[in-house]
Amino acid sequence: MQALSLSTAAGARRAPSIVSRVVTALKLARTRQSLSKLDDHMLADIGLTREEARRESERPLWDAPRSWTC
Rank of each mutant, 00 (worst) to 15 (best):
M1K: 07
Q2P: 05
Q2T: 02
S5M: 04
L6W: 11
L6N: 15
L6Q: 12
S7T: 08
S7P: 09
S7I: 00
S7D: 14
S7N: 08
S7R: 06
S7Y: 02
T8P: 04
A10Y: 07
G11V: 00
A12D: 13
R13H: 05
R14Q: 13
R14K: 07
A15K: 12
A15L: 14
S17D: 13
I18S: 15
I18G: 14
I18F: 13
V19F: 01
V19C: 09
S20T: 09
R21K: 11
R21D: 10
V22W: 05
V23S: 10
V23E: 07
V23M: 12
T24R: 01
T24P: 00
T24A: 00
T24Y: 00
T24C: 00
L26D: 03
L26T: 01
K27E: 09
K27A: 06
K27I: 06
K27Y: 08
R30N: 08
R30Q: 07
R30P: 11
T31Q: 06
R32D: 08
R32E: 04
R32A: 04
R32L: 03
Q33C: 06
S34R: 14
L35M: 07
L35E: 07
S36P: 11
S36Y: 05
S36I: 08
S36H: 10
S36R: 07
S36V: 10
K37V: 10
L38M: 10
L38S: 12
L38F: 01
L38K: 05
L38N: 06
D39Y: 04
D39K: 09
D39Q: 11
D40Q: 08
D40E: 11
H41E: 00
H41G: 00
L43K: 04
L43R: 02
L43F: 07
D45S: 04
D45L: 01
D45P: 00
I46Q: 00
I46K: 01
I46C: 05
I46N: 00
I46L: 04
G47W: 05
L48A: 04
L48C: 03
L48H: 01
T49P: 00
T49M: 04
R50Y: 02
E51K: 08
E51G: 14
E51R: 08
E51V: 15
E52I: 00
A53C: 09
R54Y: 08
R55N: 12
R55T: 13
R55L: 15
E56Q: 08
E56D: 01
E56K: 05
E56V: 02
S57F: 06
S57V: 09
E58H: 12
E58P: 08
E58Y: 11
E58T: 14
R59Q: 15
R59E: 15
P60S: 10
P60W: 02
W62E: 15
W62K: 11
W62G: 14
A64M: 13
A64R: 14
A64V: 15
A64K: 14
A64W: 10
P65N: 09
P65W: 01
R66F: 11
R66L: 13
R66A: 15
S67V: 15
W68R: 11
W68Y: 10
W68M: 12
T69R: 08
T69L: 04
T69M: 07
C70I: 10
C70G: 15
